[in-house]
């Protein structure tokens, strides 16, 4: 019995290490200039993942990542709602237990896209959009990207918006195909 727990524990640790950096990167951007600590947001997300781990561990990496992303987004939106209504007197424990995590449509779409498909899609972007998006994904700020291309900062924002729009347009038809294939095979 103890071996089983230890094995599960190790798998969960590995799961955290696999997904934590990407989640933390997102959390840092979301929590920028707010009182919410990105580490807390990520920790709460994994806390939510623990009781679900018996299902999550058997899903694809993309599906698990999409689930974690949805969960973290929910936690973040909860924070925003709490902040707005200024219900700050509630004990943390109560906050932890509110708002059940439920899969969203967007999660269902994205969990069907894997990283190889994403790589192919980004290669098909216009060169300046692709390069700007790559720099952005490396963690560079708009000002740094603007300096790199010698363009105004506002242009960088437009390029990234266009890159994301094009990526979605390239990836979502594949989602439809994957969904169709899934339906056929089931």
């Amino acid at each position: 019995m103890a071996d089983l727990f230890n094995r599960e524990r190790r798998r969960f640790e590995a799961f955290i290490r696999q997904h934590r950096p990407a989640l933390l990167g997102l959390a840092r951007r979301l929590c920028a200039r707010s009182s919410l600590e990105p580490e807390d947001l990520v920790q709460e997300t994994f806390e939510r993942a623990m009781p679900e781990f018996s299902q999550l561990k058997d899903r694809t990496d993309s599906a698990a990542a999409a689930w974690l992303c949805t969960t973290m987004t929910n936690r973040f939106l909860d924070y925003c709602r709490r902040q707005r209504t200024e219900v700050r007197g509630l004990p943390h424990l109560a906050l932890v237990q509110d708002a059940a995590v439920s899969p969203e449509d967007s999660q269902e779409n994205w969990e069907l896209v894997n990283t190889d498909e994403f790589q192919k899609a980004i290669e098909r972007l216009k060169p300046h959009l692709r390069d700007a998006y790559r720099l952005h994904a490396e963690g560079r700020r708009y000002t740094a990207i603007a300096e790199h291309f010698n363009v105004p900062v506002g242009t960088v924002g437009s390029w990234l918006t266009l890159a994301r729009r094009d990526l979605k347009e390239l990836l979502l038809p594949q989602v439809a195909v994957a969904r169709e294939q899934g339906a056929r095979s089931s």
Binding site: Q18, P21, L26, C69, S106, T115, Q119
Partner: peptide, 18 residues
Amino acid sequence: RDLLQLEMLASRALAGAG
């Protein structure tokens, strides 16, 4: 939600986040 999913995917695919 959509944007964060895309960024999560990008992070995994491009930045060696896995």
